[in-house]
């Protein structure tokens, strides 16, 4: 395994694409650092906290593509044959690829972090909660492990160049699919019934816009007295629970959960309804990430050991 890792890192270090990714991370870190300072000047609080994790969506898209490219080059050039023919086991080849792809992701994280933090601090920005930042970073490392495991599974089983498209599509689907799912799940159970309600706007002497609601007879209605009806877009149970779990399990949903400090939900009903932010416990996200990693890797090892290599 150590020998295969050494060969993989050597191949990666000779790859222009790998260093292009490093340059991209470094450039993003510089931009984020300077942007954090600008935000501070505009009195936007906690800009550094948000920018400290600005690399995450970018890496989420880059890592599967990088992994697919790295493993597929092994198939394309035929160099995977050099490993198996000389007696390296398929399990060792698979695991070495997984570790290499994951560590390259961590290296990208490190490049961003070691440039962004000193730069933003030199520019006068300070993290509001370094412990929370460290916890998020640690959790994101697990999320990227599960993402790498899924990408390596696909890249090891699909030997054709189409795997690059498949992995890029996977990253987009996981990321934007989970964002779309979150929007769907944020729909409230009850909504105001605007049917037959007229809305008029007036400007007072101070130039402020005042909105007024009236019924069909022209009687004013207070927004608090507005009738509520069930929201047709609301996703009821049990689907609500299922989709929430899907988003918590899949790496894209986990990423948004960490970056957005949870997700929106509602408590109570009618006029008692309250919008709240709910956070899936970090330990549960970590558990799901490990489960995805283990299941993907076990499936990958089983299928790769039987794969006909050309």
């Amino acid at each position: 395994m150590r020998k295969l890792l050494s060969a993989n890192f050597y191949a990666m270090s000779r790859s222009l694409r790998f260093w292009l990714g490093v340059f991209m991370m470094a450039a993003t870190a510089v931009y984020a650092g300077v942007d954090a300072r600008k935000m501070l000047d505009m009195n936007v609080n906690n800009a550094i906290d948000a920018n400290a994790l600005l690399f995450v969506p970018l890496l989420f898209l880059v890592l599967p593509a990088l992994g697919a490219l790295f493993i597929n080059t092994d198939y394309h050039d035929g160099t995977i044959r050099n490993k198996i023919t000389v007696g390296r086991s398929r399990a060792a080849v698979y695991l070495a690829n997984l570790i290499s792809v994951y560590l390259s992701g961590l290296f990208y994280m490190a490049v961003y972090t070691v440039i962004f933090l000193p730069l933003s601090m030199a520019l006068g920005c300070r993290l509001s909660d370094p412990q929370a930042y460290a916890a998020k970073l640690a959790l994101l490392m697990l999320v990227f492990l599960s993402l790498a495991a899924v990408a390596v599974l696909l890249a090891s089983l699909i030997a054709s160049r189409s795997v690059l498209v498949v992995c890029a599509f996977l990253a987009f689907t996981l990321m934007f699919g989970s964002a779309a799912l979150n929007v769907m799940l944020e729909e409230p159970q009850m909504i105001d019934d605007f049917d037959g309600v007229m809305m008029t706007t007036e400007t007072d002497n101070d130039g402020r816009v005042i909105m007024q609601y009236t019924d069909s007879q022209g009687n004013p209605i207070s927004p608090e007295d507005m009738k509520t009806i069930p929201n047709p877009r609301y996703i009821p149970q049990p689907w609500r629970g299922v989709l929430r779990t899907v988003n918590d399990v899949q790496p894209g949903g986990q990423m948004w959960e960490i970056l957005q400090n949870g997700h929106t939900d509602y408590t109570g009903s009618g006029s008692e309804r309250l919008e709240i932010t709910v956070q899936t416990p970090y330990w549960l996200i970590a558990l799901y990430a490990l489960a995805v990693t283990l299941v993907s890797t076990a499936a990958g090892l089983a299928l790769f050991s039987r794969k006909d290599i050309k």
């Binding site: 000779r14 080059t73 050039d77 035929g78 160099t79 995977i80 044959r81 023919t85 050309k310």
Partner: peptide, 9 residues
């Protein structure tokens, strides 16, 4: 086997 197994880069 088949084509030479070499890293083209």
């Amino acid at each position: 086997v088949e084509t030479p197994s070499i890293c083209l880069d």
